[in-house]
Amino acid sequence: MPPSISNSQSIAAAITAVCLVILLLLLRFAYVTYRTGRPHRTPQRRRLRTLIVLGSGGHTAEMINLLEVLPKERFEPRVYIAAATDNMSLQKARVFESSLGSQVEVAEFHQVYRSREVGQSYLTSVGTTIFAIGHALWLIFQIRPEVIICNGPGTCIPLCIAAFFFKLAGLRWSSIFYVESIARVRKLSLSGLLLYKLHLADQIFVQWPQLQKTYPKAHYVGRLM
């Protein structure tokens, strides 16, 4: 009968379309994973929108030490993000920016919900992580960073995952750099391990040579503190 034929045809067409979309997504996924970690070949001549994810206390101090020596005119504008529960880090970033004498437009400051607070159970952190990723997607959509520099703890994970989704969708390519804290001597932190294992970061830096031996794809860079 004609109707059933057109029905089965449209079902077949739908299945083919779904398969095609899945195939395209898989190909894109493979391409993004392949490109991540490969240096840019063409010489860079412009400024890059940079997102700096601040951790807390000692982490922020290490990040400021890195920003001190980074050629600022290449990493502009700079957007800083800290956890919503962390009042100190953005303050330190503001002090750093005003010490540069930079104009107001060069630096922006945001807060993000954390996926997991210190001491929170792993079970409830599943829900808070999903919420944090949602917020992170919105922030990445607004900021559209070309470079992301982060150094843990957990605050950077939802933002890096959100940035990965934007890479997958072809909306914005961001190069992600992660600096492991100097406090990690023998093992990567959970954030560092996630980025390392999931190939989310382009480069992971460690501050102790023995850590680089355990994680050979990381770069040993000496101490930031």
């Binding site: 240096p39 050629p71 770069h219 860079v221 000496g222």
Partner: peptide, 18 residues
């Protein structure tokens, strides 16, 4: 004293800055 220039150099080089 600490020295952050190795990290900054690696990031620079990776992004294709001179």
């Amino acid at each position: 004293p600490a020295d952050a220039t190795p990290v900054a150099q690696l990031i620079n080089g990776f992004l294709g800055f001179p």
